[in-house]
C-alpha cells in the first residue's frame, strides 16, 4: 500500500448526496477475479457518453479538474453495495483522498484498507472548502496527514482529525494482516476460551 504523508494536487467537487457504489463502479466491471482495469469503470455512466467518448459535462472531464487527486464529496458517499471495486477504481484513477461530511461505513473501511484517505469535516467547513475548490483558479490543495491539515492557496488551512490507529497505518502503508498475525497467540487463546464457553460454535 502506498504510504500517505502529504499530497498536493487538484480537488474536484462532487457534491450530490448518496452517490452509491453502483454509480461509482457499475456492475459490468465486477466480473473480474483480479483488480485490473477498474479505472475505466469508475463513474462509468457519468464519465462516458453512449458512444464511449468522455462526457464533457462530467467534472473530471473538464480541463480544470482533469487528473484530480482529491474529491470533495456530498453526504453518504459510497453507500450501497460493499464492492471494494469502487475503491480500487478510485485508486487506479489516482484519487488519493476523499473529503466529505459522512461516508457509508463499509466504503469508509475499504478506503482505509487501500490507502485512500477519507476526511470527515463538519458541514460548515466542508461547504467552505467546496466553495473554494469549485473555483478553477483555486482548486489546488495540499492534504497533509502528518499535520492533519488541508492547505489552500490564499486561504486559511482546514484542520481535520483521523484516528491515530488509521493515521499510523496510512502513513506507514502497513500490511494489516501481517500486523494482526503478530497477535496470533492471543487470538488462539481467545478462540480456545470462546469455543469452550460456547461449544455449539465449534
Amino acid at each position: 500500500m502506498e504510504p500517505f504523508i502529504s499530497v498536493t494536487g487538484t480537488a474536484a467537487p462532487m457534491l450530490a448526496a448518496n452517490i452509491d457504489t453502483d454509480v461509482i463502479m457499475p456492475k459490468q466491471f465486477l466480473k473480474g477475479i483480479d483488480r485490473q482495469g477498474l479505472d475505466r469503470g469508475l463513474f462509468h455512466g457519468l464519465r462516458f457518453q453512449e458512444d464511449g467518448t468522455p462526457d464533457p459535462s462530467f467534472i473530471l472531464n473538464q480541463p480544470a479538474w482533469q487528473g484530480s487527486r482529491f474529491l470533495v464529496v456530498g453526504p453518504n458517499f459510497g453507500c450501497g453495495s460493499s464492492r471494494e471495486h469502487a475503491v480500487w477504481g478510485l485508486q487506479q484513477l489516482g484519487i488519493r483522498a476523499l473529503i466529505g461530511t459522512t461516508f457509508a461505513g463499509i466504503f469508509y473501511d475499504n478506503c482505509q484498507r487501500n490507502g485512500v484517505l477519507t476526511i470527515k469535516l463538519d458541514p460548515e467547513r466542508h461547504q467552505q472548502l467546496a466553495d473554494v475548490i469549485s473555483n478553477p483558479e483555486r482548486n489546488q490543495i495540499t492534504v497533509d496527514l502528518e499535520q492533519q491539515i488541508i492547505a489552500l492557496e490564499n486561504a486559511d488551512a482546514v484542520p481535520f482529525q483521523v484516528d491515530t490507529l488509521k493515521r499510523d497505518a496510512l502513513m506507514r502503508g502497513l500490511d494489516a494482516i501481517g500486523t494482526t498475525l503478530e497477535r496470533q497467540a492471543q487470538i488462539m487463546a481467545f478462540e480456545q476460551r470462546h469455543l469452550a464457553q460456547n461449544p455449539w460454535l465449534k
Binding site: E84, D109, N110, A176, T180
Partner: peptide, 9 residues
C-alpha cells in the same frame, strides 16, 4: 458487511 480486503484479513 465488509469489503474484499477485510474478507482476506
Amino acid at each position: 458487511g465488509i469489503g474484499t480486503s477485510e474478507i482476506e484479513h
